[in-house]
Design a protein around this nucleic acid. Structure first.
Lengths: 329, 329
DNA sequence: CTGAAAGCGCTTACAG
DNA sequence: CTGAAAGCGCTTACAG
């Protein structure tokens, strides 16, 4: 493999000068520059990224930590990130925690050891160990999806989205509205969306039967099971609408309802969150909320790049959303 | 940041010994080993990958080139790749060509400069420049999805899958079967699937009206438009079934048919390929072919890892598939 | 069983 | 405008 030393010898200069030409730093006579560039071209020389990165502590790589690599949300976000970082010559190092919290910490360390220039975490929870690890590695860092204290975060507007969905159902004439959520260790999806629902119900003076609130785990199957529980446990006091906090679970909910012969939205209106492609093509098409995941990805990447340059940390951003009315309500 | 020297000092040994412990190479007394491991644990020390890779010429990174990052197929394949490479301590460097062929070549070069240990290309076409670039970089290389001459390739069994789908439609009593394909610069999807269809039709002595064969571009929308063309151009000689070479296009096809009031499968049977999650939840659920993308990803990764060790190149593999019968036929 | 030393391929003060 | 030298953090013959 040709190295900077080879180029230097061939050009009859020191490797210092070659380095200067390659990095456009310092003065180099036009003649020498030409000569070196010619040789670089001819030999197809490409500098060793490892050596460069060992020396400079920068790698041109952005680490991305995903909770699950093969989901629509993840791939949209990654597409958004990729769009902006690739423009600036950065690459993405992908990492998949498979929804295991310990792995988030492990991967932050690992990415650090790989000298990534910054990290974007699609956060699913908040815990002290995570926070202290982030502090320790002391890298440009963006949290997407959860508001991490002391760390630049971009969050979806979970509370208001949930309020809007609930209000929308009320305005459609529903007073018995059920809810399928997820666990509270996820502050964004588990806590905020539920809060938006509960507070809105209360504001309208609507009561919530305990059997109407169930908890899933993001899977289609868990939506199916939760809806089954509601029908079983409500003893005839069935809701007329149901707000499900993710599209996938909402799809499962609809599956169960259709299977049992319920008409949607006649017997039961259904609303989700996520604007998955699927939501558009199920029957009836699913009323949902678009979180603009791709934009959120781009935004995170942009913020990270800014941080690389200006060191401005701990900013907070809230991502836009949009209610999409379809036929399931 | 703590380095190997810090650890050596704290343990009162040379960095040579620390290195030996970390890499499990050479003899180290049990006592010293314990001592060092303890300190490593306590400090959370992680070796610098750049330094290591500069020294050893290996990076522990696998480059993956995707045609489009945010598709279900891509994310399944990546999940499969990740599963096996992460077990062996490798990371993935992701790259997205946005379906532009020049970018495939560009990214191969870029990955080379980053000292990736190998490359997996989700190939969409074959051309000479691509082939010669692959030869030049001379890295462990796997092509997934297209059979690249001289290069270890793992392909889906496009021909036989298409034959099976067509036969299945014939066996269901259809004799007028239409086809929506893609362009021929894609040998796998564009050429082989069409060949399977045409030869099977011929074998059964069934004729194909020219208007029954249309071409899309993988998008849902293009499936919609292709179906529209078929209904317009067939002048009453409508097919009773249609084989669409991807699920997404098949979804578009169904959209158009439903919109026009056709009953599926009563007026028109529809079959796709891909086994997307969506195919399961549209109405009626879509008959399709499962290509086991995730397994294909794992397999590619395994082959790449093998190549890293044993240098066996230019093997050819054909991936399994499975016909999934649902309600659209 | 352990360590001193060389070297991987770069960049960057420093000096001229 | 240019170069000699130090050093980034590792691994690996070599020697003992």
């Amino acid at each position: 493999m040709t190295t900077i030393n080879d180029i230097a010898k061939m050009a009859n200069v020191s490797r210092t000068t070659v380095s200067r030409v390659l990095n456009n730093s310092g003065y180099v006579s036009e003649e020498v520059r030409k000569r070196i560039l010619d040789i670089v071209e001819k030999t197809g020389y490409i500098p060793s990224v490892s050596a460069k990165s060992l020396r400079t502590k920068r790698s041109g790589v952005i680490g991305v930590i995903l909770p699950k690599i093969s989901t629509e949300t993840a791939s949209r976000v990654v597409a958004g990130i990729n769009e902006v970082v690739s423009r600036e010559g950065f690459q993405i190092l992908l990492t998949d925690t498979e929804l295991k919290k310990e792995k988030e910490i492990e991967y932050i360390r690992l990415l650090q050891s790989r000298h990534v220039d910054g990290i974007i975490l699609l956060a699913t929870n908040i815990n002290d160990q995570l926070l202290s690890t982030i502090k320790e590695v002391n890298l440009p860092f963006i949290s997407l999806g959860q508001d991490l204290p002391g760390i630049t975060s971009i969050v979806y507007d979970d509370y208001h989205a949930a309020v809007d969905v609930t209000n929308m159902l009320v305005n459609k004439g529903h007073s018995k509205i059920a809810f399928i959520g997820v666990g509270e260790d996820d502050p964004a999806v588990g806590v905020m969306r539920r809060k938006g629902y509960l507070e809105t119900m209360e504001k309208h003076g609507l009561s919530v039967d305990p059997s109407w609130m169930q908890e899933g785990n993001f899977s289609i199957e868990s939506g199916y099971e939760s809806m089954k529980k509601i029908t079983k446990e409500s003893h005839g006091n069935l809701p007329s609408a149901i707000f499900v906090v993710t599209d996938r679970m909402a799809i499962g909910t609809m599956e169960y309802l259709k299977e049992q012969g319920y008409n949607i939205p006649g017997d039961m209106a259904v609303a989700g969150i996520g604007a998955s492609v699927m939501s558009q093509y199920v029957s009836p098409s699913l009323t949902t909320v678009d979180y603009f995941n791709r934009d959120a990805g781009s935004k995170s990447a942009q913020l990270l790049l800014d941080q690389l340059k200006y060191k401005n940390i701990n900013e907070k951003f809230t991502q836009n959303y949009r209610l999409i009315m379809r036929d399931s309500v």
